[in-house]
Amino acid sequence: MNYIEPHGHMVSRTTADYERMALAGCVAISEPAFWAGFDRDSVKGFYDYFRQLTEYEPARAKKFGIAHFCWICINPKEGDDPGFAREVIEIIPDFLKKPNVLGVGEIGLNKNTKNELIILEAQIDLAVKHNQLILVHTPHLEDKRKGTRIIMDALLNHGGVEPDRVLIDHVEEHTVAEVLDKGFWAGMTLYPETKCTTQRAADIIEMYGTERLWMNSACDWGISDPLAVPKARMELKRRGHSEAAIKRLTYDNPHTFLSQSPNFNLPG
């Protein structure tokens, strides 16, 4: 069964991972811009990274029959330096015109700071002005609930954001209801140590339904698993969920959300 990996940091993965994902049924990947594990020293560092996302990764994915899409932004961690972040934001509009770009993301908060919020608000405005989808990163530990609430306030206070064009990622049991109730899409990140396990993701689906919800592996440079989505499908199957429900979560839902961008076209 085909699936979409809607949040995978492929710049951190080997080519063998692309092959394994293709063998497991992955037909498309959407890759948000994120923190590379170190703070970049110049705007040029971001320029090179955005080229990697818009030129090199699509070519690498294509060899395995996987369509590669991406999101452009300055991540919340490096957004904590507003002067530098504004310089990076200046080069983003040119990249939003690239054919595999789906929107602005993953923007959000990392340590719930005022500086991060300034840059989050600037990038929400950038997305609205350029009619782009938004992909949101939420903090990972004790700061998640607070951060998720501040982010949702910023999105709704802007006035120009349509919640069904925004996906708020890394939800867990204490944030999923608020995100869905406000009309946003929600993403569950299957991550072995923090975030959500496949069993808990299946539990959340059972309690909150399959509407406006997706699952992703993140598969970044941390301890993570590029096959987490197919493993979550196995978990749902083991519990007796229907093929239709599993397809809805791992193919139809990401397809529906991402198709709001005119750039999201899958061959066939």
Binding site: K77, D80, N110, K111, N112, T113, K114, N115, E116, L117, P139, H140, L141, E142, D143, K144, R145, K146, I150, E172, E173, H174
Partner: peptide, 21 residues
């Protein structure tokens, strides 16, 4: 998760004054 959550409402100006998660 609620029990383990930061229940404060204040925001530090920058990550330099923020505690590590």
């Amino acid at each position: 998760l609620d029990l383990l959550s930061d229940a404060t409402e204040t925001m530090p100006q920058s990550a330099a004054n923020a505690k590590f998660a």
